[in-house]
Amino acid sequence: MRRENIWTIVMLVGLAALIGRATLTSTGMGREYVRAVPVANGQWTEYQPATYGQYLRAVNGNPAQTEYLFSWSRTIGLWAAAFFTLAVFSFLFGDNPIYKVAEAVLVGVSAAYWIVVAFWDVIVPNLIGKISPATIQNWAMPGLTGPDAARDLWYLIPLILGIMLLWRLAPKGTWISRWPLAFVIGSFAGLQMIAFLHGDFLAQLRNTVLPVIVMNQGTFDPSTSFKNLLIVAGVLCGVVYFFFSFEHTGIVGKMAQGGIWFLMITFGAAFGYTVMGRIALLAIRLEFLLDDWLWLIDPTNKRV
């Protein structure tokens, strides 16, 4: 039998099992519920996430209740999340159109989300809200009152710089966009230089100037002494390894060799942490599939 046929059969069996589990079993799977909470004296309703367990308890208490409801939109979202999770996993088997679709959707949604968030969280309150507070009060943020709503015309400068930056899109005069870009790069470089000088260079000097013989309440503390000695030796050897003005022979060579060992151990520890992080990512996606979607496990008693 051809490999494609085997995979088609596996996919169809999996799909049939999913449909069977969702429709034929007593528990079902992949459904989302919400709690309808009236807000502002019932002027509108806020739908808060609820669990299947809360829904069951409410229905058992009063079959005609309308507080806990099945949510079509959240259920579709859940199935979409499950589909995209599997679509991304499918890349492990090989590049395929389903993975491409998932990738494109992720990029598109992320870009759109960033634009919307930047508009409502920054441009509206921090730019228009400062230049023309009354406009923002009437249009978008009635809560913007008091001293925080005072007009501040200094914000015209970032507005002008922002417009100049967008000039890049115009067919002529793209040089105009270089001026705000120069301002951004210059100010960022200045900020970063001070931060790295203080935060990394000077602070790390301070952190590594340690006593190698530590006395604790008048007695020698061997563990802290050894730890400090290791840190000091690691820093010195690591620095010597990157010191190329002398040939790495003799004592310099031995220290450089030690530096390689320290570096390799550091990379190993970093790799170990990375493995842990990646496994955690895989674990939460599988937990999502087994718990929220397939309802095979219920570690947080959501459906009890």
């Binding site: 978008a140 008091g146 925080d148």
Partner: peptide, 29 residues
């Protein structure tokens, strides 16, 4: 708030220069 480390730098001395409302749109005062 966008601005990365710039946000930290500003709110260290003046929170209200960046935050005029909370996420619900209520004025900080």
């Amino acid at each position: 708030k966008s601005g990365n480390e710039g946000v930290i730098k500003v709110i260290l001395t003046n929170l209200r220069a960046l935050y005029t409302t909370d996420t619900k749109g209520t004025a900080l005062q």
